[in-house]
Amino acid sequence: MLLQKRYDGCWGLPGGLMDLGESFEEVAIREIFEETGLVVENLKLLNIFSGSKYYLKVPNGDELYSVTAVYYTRDVSGDMKIDYSESEKMQYFLMNNLPNELTDEYRGFIEQYLDCKKCI
């Protein structure tokens, strides 16, 4: 599994915010390319995560509930080129050897992936 180490020291999945007019799939494809240089195709939706569990308070004081669409694929091509303005490091991990510094939110996404028999 490809994970991104952010400058706060935590690991998570590459991703980002939706631009106006984009679909969830378009966001995933664009963000992966921008952050990793990799091209992903044939995305499969794992789930859409929303609700009170996904409350955020951002540094400027704004409060929100996020809605996150998580996709997976094995159809990856290109050469990894890390966007160092977004990430300190990118690394592939074996599913049984994920980093301890993985955030609870991302750990929940990955656990659902591991529970999904058709995904693996």
Rank of each mutant, 00 (worst) to 15 (best):
A69N: 02
I48D: 08
T68M: 06
F93C: 04
L98F: 08
M95G: 02
W11Q: 04
V58Q: 02
K117Y: 06
D62F: 14
V27W: 14
T103R: 01
S66F: 03
E41K: 15
D75H: 14
E86D: 12
Y72L: 02
D19Y: 01
N97Y: 01
S85Q: 13
W11Y: 08
R30G: 12
D83C: 11
P59Q: 09
E31G: 11
L43K: 05
G16S: 04
C119P: 04
Q91Y: 06
Y71K: 07
E26K: 15
D83W: 08
T73A: 08
N47A: 11
G108S: 03
G15V: 01
D19F: 05
L3V: 12
Q91S: 09
D8M: 07
C119K: 02
V70H: 06
S85M: 11
Y113E: 05
K89Q: 13
M90T: 10
Y71V: 10
S66C: 02
D75T: 12
G21V: 02
S66R: 09
K117P: 05
Y55Q: 00
S52E: 13
K118P: 01
N96F: 04
L2F: 14
Q91G: 01
I48C: 08
S52W: 05
N96D: 03
I48M: 10
Y55C: 05
L3S: 12
M1Y: 12
S87Y: 11
E35A: 14
N42F: 02
T36K: 07
D115P: 03
L2V: 10
K89I: 07
K53F: 07
M1K: 11
D8H: 10
D83G: 06
K118D: 09
D115A: 10
R107N: 00
G108C: 03
L38P: 13
V70Y: 06
E86S: 14
L64R: 05
S66N: 06
G15Q: 01
R74Y: 14
G37Y: 01
M95N: 04
L13A: 02
N100L: 06
G16I: 03
N100Y: 09
I110Q: 00
E88I: 11
E25V: 12
E22N: 08
L2C: 13
E34W: 13
T73S: 12
F109G: 01
E26G: 15
L114H: 04
D83E: 10
G108V: 01
V67C: 00
I32F: 13
Y113F: 15
E34Y: 14
E35H: 14
M90I: 15
D62A: 13
K44A: 07
V58K: 02
R107S: 05
M80F: 03
L98Q: 07
V27G: 15
W11N: 03
G9N: 00
S77E: 15
S85K: 15
N42K: 09
G9C: 05
R74W: 14
L43H: 05
G12W: 00
S50Q: 11
K89R: 13
G78Y: 05
P99D: 02
Y7W: 14
I32H: 09
Y55A: 06
G16A: 04
N96A: 00
I120F: 08
L17I: 05
Y92T: 03
I110D: 01
K117F: 04
G9L: 05
S50N: 09
F24W: 15
G37K: 02
E41W: 07
E88Y: 09
